[in-house]
């Protein structure tokens, strides 16, 4: 970092106060529709922040455009509400310039997968140390209800009166296919799980990608109710927990086992299978992560939720700093006079 930035960073007197959640609420009035799932995500984020033990001024939220992307205005940290789809690229530049900061990207299914899809996959393969929270409501909220890249085939929206003929992305599989180091899915209506996943994402070094199923009660109400409402959720969701078998169901009476490479549902009460037959989740196994991500749109299987993969590898920003440090320690800090006079020079008397 340049001298002036170093001065700011080294001279900063960071308060040693213990934060509480409301220290992270800004003075801006929150303006999402009443009942919007975004409120819960904001609340859980503010709740986990004190546990991060990072001074508020060291945290930056960068977003694109969309309802979800209003998020940074409501966090009492540094923030950029940028342009549609580009938050990942802006945050990448920020993190490269300032590896000392904790940088979050807030994006939506349109912002992050449609207009910003290209930047997203490149961020993932590079593994810049950012935390991405993708609010998936399977709709374009801010522009008032067009289908999005995660809307289901056949979805009737304002722009698809006869049903969408686009096949949706499976964000977790896309992320894994893009070599994203940390890939997770959680739900706006499961605050404890949401908090857990956000915390894990924050602690993970490298690109962490968290897809949050988020209800847009105005334009796509109930898109995820099967996975969030009492009557159906237990039989429709399987939680991935590292080192544990994949058990689900109201009475924990069902599980997932592998039949070849295909996951299948088995009953734990019909006497044919026991818990020992079940697939054990392993966050460090990327092959397994693909198999579980691919359960996503399979109607015969419960929806996988949790941390698909968490495998650390060198970060882009870390490698960038390393190359610079190595060059400076080998050649010394550059001098302009030497640089100007390098190459073929000659004197005129």
């Amino acid at each position: 970092m340049g001298k002036l930035v170093d001065d700011v960073v080294t001279q900063a007197e960071h308060a040693s106060v213990k934060y509480v959640a409301k220290d992270f609420a800004s003075d801006q009035e929150v303006r999402w529709c009443p009942g919007c799932g975004d409120y819960s995500i904001l609340a859980q984020m503010q709740r986990i922040m004190p546990d991060m033990n990072i001074p508020r001024e060291k945290i930056v939220f960068v977003s694109g455009i969309g309802c979800s992307s209003r998020f940074p205005y409501y966090m009492n940290t540094y923030g950029i509400h940028s342009i549609h789809g580009r938050a990942t690229a802006i945050a990448s530049g920020l993190k490269m310039a300032r590896p000392d900061l904790m940088v979050w990207v807030i994006t939506g299914d349109g912002d992050g997968l449609s207009i910003g899809g290209n930047h997203m996959i490149h961020l993932m393969r590079r593994n810049v140390d950012l935390n991405v929270v993708m609010f998936n409501n399977q709709i374009y909220g801010l522009t008032k209800g067009q289908y999005s890249p995660t809307s289901e085939f056949g979805k009737v929206t304002k722009s698809t009166p006869q049903g969408s003929i686009d096949y949706p992305f499976n964000p977790a599989a896309l992320a894994l296919g893009s070599s994203c180091a940390f890939v997770a899915r959680t739900l706006d209506r499961e605050p404890k799980h949401l908090q857990y996943v956000l915390k894990r994402a924050a602690e993970f070094k490298g690109t962490s990608y968290v897809e949050v199923y988020q209800n847009c009660n105005v334009f796509n109400d109930g898109a995820f109710f099967q996975f969030t409402e009492k009557e159906t959720k237990d039989d429709s969701v399987v939680y991935l927990e590292h080192g544990k078998p994949l058990v689900f169901g109201k009475n924990k009476d069902k599980g997932i086992k592998l039949d070849g490479f295909s996951p299948v549902v088995v009953s734990l009460t019909d006497g044919m299978h026991s818990i020992n037959d079940l697939l054990i989740h392993n966050e460090k196994d990327s092959t397994l992560a693909f198999i579980m991500a691919n359960m996503t749109y399979n109607a015969a299987l419960p929806r996988p939720v949790g941390i698909f993969q968490a495998i650390e590898r060198p970060t882009y920003d870390g490698e960038m700093s390393k190359q610079i440090d190595a060059t400076i320690s080998k050649r010394g800090r550059g001098s302009l006079d030497k640089l100007f006079a390098s190459g073929d020079t000659w004197m005129i008397q």
């Binding site: 990448s92 490269m96 300032r98």
Partner: peptide
């Protein structure tokens, strides 16, 4: 687009 966007991010950070 990513090129200029990254530069804007870096600028926000003081580069």
């Amino acid at each position: 687009i990513a090129a200029i966007a990254s530069a804007i991010g870096a600028s926000f950070g003081g580069a």
